[in-house]
Design a protein around this nucleic acid. Structure first.
Lengths: 358, 358
DNA sequence: GGGTTATCTGAAAACGATTTCATCATCCCT
DNA sequence: AGGGATGATGAAATCGTTTTCAGATAACCC
């Protein structure tokens, strides 16, 4: 019993028409007489026919699959982003080819080659080591791409980021207005534009309010939980430890929280804490965490809109790349308080009731 | 300037050989003389050639893309699972087509049709409403599939679940040995095998230890944060509220925690709490949450192994489906304590130091 | 040297769809 | 009634690969 996949040919035979007509009936934009169309559709339904999208993409020279390249889904933040993107794409009739790269440059290159090989209609990616050679490659293969979260060299792609600088500025300013001056900064590798921008926001705020930046309080490395653990420990061990910490990414927070717990630091009495990204569990930690929140859904929507614009209207004279930034809000929770005088005297209750924002 | 994608034909011309030979040099298993192979590879590199995997899959009748169908990535739990699966697959040279279904039956059907249409080599899916018609459809299109987390009717697919019954049993037993007898159960829709199995574990433990199940303490509905909020509130409002709660999924925990905070319930002094799944932030909540933990990486490994077995050795006489269960451990944290006598007397410190397990 | 292998190579037929082009009937209009 | 427009259909080319098949060349053995 040689089982074969049902093809259009089978449908055509069953319906007693040519393959061409069957094709038109199933998906064609051209005209087919009503009774023939019905016959074909009936046959297709009876046979459980499902068009081979690869063959279709091959012939049409264009698939309806979008590649998504993110560092990792283990990070709740990127997971939520991927979720928003995939939902949005499916709603528009696209499929998602997903590849986490772990921010490994070689892996990223490899992945992008593969995606092009898979003939994706377009790419949404969080660039890590994307260079101009790769940009040229993508252009050469006419694969539109939009960068999210981080920018690419020369902003040569449509880009949607968060308002990194402004957000970091707001977070830092908030700590300063609470009276803090020794504000630790736990940040990520400056090779990424998002990390540079956040640092910029921190530095700007410090400058604007006349607070000198103490290099000892600046801890920059890879954004991992382990780095959070170490960086936080380093800060606490200083002769003059910070009274507040600004963490530039949720990725380091598990580590930071671990250290604060294990060192029995009383947050926010002894130390205030603000994190750049907001993830759902920040509302339930001990204490809950004040954070800069941005809408992943809005980023998804913007990125997809830009991408589909390029996919569906391959203009002869393409518009120059645009750079969008998604705005943010400061969610004040329990991890921030007015700087306490030497003896931890009465402190203000700053905590927004949990659940107000989530 | 008519830009075209680089194809094998271009490479062949550049190298001065036929298309067939170029194909063999690039990917063929057949023999090609050394100098010709080198010429072709050089040409390919010079042209930045990347094979069109769709065309290849069409001809070879088999792609190297695996479809992954999960309810949602917004749930940190499934996100971690998807991450584990994608990493594992990429390591083996496969790609991932991802589709979240939001547990919507119509969406699931649609998605599976699409995946078959995309000609995936195989499917890994968390079944929600998968019925025998769909199973027949998959069989007919020779698309191997393995079910994860939940089982399918008749266990007609290779399946990898967690030890739901045993885990729930262990969690419940643990609460009982702490002295609790009024143990609330917040669970999910019994249409899913995982939820049935967890309920089973709860009921078994209660029976085995001679504790009657009070229907008032059993709250079953869709596993969402909102349901956690409501269910928990209902339980607290009872004339005789529970002294402990077993939540059958991490999905309800944000809601449960929110209610417990807003109602100022002292956990674990007034109420002990155990959750079935473990996610990373359970270690940092106020208090930290005792949980049943299983390894997503192990599930991923098992599922992929089973799937690739069927993909790569399409045996004439396929083996019958197998059912594997991934084991678990009970991670004791701060949300569980010995049942306090009427006045909340001294209570045991049960909390494992944070970070010990994470 | 002739016959037999072995080893490479190229022409051409797939894979399953879409689309161009040509054909043919039909209809409308003067 | 003839001619052009219109609309439905089928044959065949095409997308970019792989693979069969057969031919060609070289190598080898007696």
């Amino acid at each position: 019993m040689p089982k074969r996949r049902i093809t259009l040919k089978d449908v055509a035979e069953q319906a007693g028409v040519s393959i061409a007509t069957a094709s038109r009936a199933v998906s064609g934009a051209t005209t087919v007489s009503d009774d023939v169309r019905q016959r074909v559709l009936d046959a297709a339904a009876a046979l459980n026919y499902q068009p081979n999208l690869q063959a279709r993409a091959l012939r049409r020279r264009g698939s309806r699959v979008v590649g998504l390249v993110v560092p990792s889904l283990a990070n709740a933040y990127y997971a939520a982003l991927a979720d928003a993107i995939s939902q949005n794409l499916m709603r528009r009739g696209y499929h998602l080819l997903l590849a986490p790269t772990a921010d490994d440059p070689a892996g990223e290159t490899e992945t992008l080659y593969d995606m092009v090989g898979q003939n994706v209609a377009g790419l949404i990616l969080v660039p890590s080591a994307l260079d101009s050679a790769m940009l040229a490659y993508l252009a050469e293969h006419e694969t539109p791409a939009v960068a999210i979260v981080r920018r690419v060299p020369g902003d040569a792609l449509d880009t949607v980021t968060f308002e990194d600088t402004q957000g970091a500025y707001a977070a830092t300013r908030y700590l300063i207005t609470l009276g803090h001056r020794r504000i630790g900064y736990i940040g990520g590798d400056e090779q990424f534009s998002s990390n540079r921008a956040r640092w910029q926001g921190y530095a700007d705020a410090m400058r604007d309010f006349g607070v000198p930046v103490d290099p000892q309080l600046v801890k920059i490395d890879q954004l991992r939980a382990t780095w959070g653990t170490l960086a936080c420990l380093d800060l606490l061990k200083l002769a003059a430890p910070p009274t507040a910490i600004f963490a530039a990414s949720n990725a380091v927070m598990p580590g930071v929280m671990r250290t604060l717990h294990s060192q029995r630091v009383d947050v926010p009495a002894q130390l205030s804490l603000v994190c750049f990204d907001d993830v759902d569990w920040f509302a339930f930690t001990r204490p809950s965490i004040t954070a800069i929140r941005s809408s992943q859904a809005r980023l998804a929507e913007a990125a997809i809109t830009l991408l589909l614009e390029r996919i569906e209207q391959p203009a002869a004279q393409p518009r120059p790349p645009v750079l969008l930034e998604i705005d943010f809000s400061l969610v004040v929770r329990g991890s921030t308080a007015v700087l306490a005088p030497q003896p931890p005297a009465q402190r203000l209750e700053q905590e927004t009731p949990d659940g107000q924002r989530i």
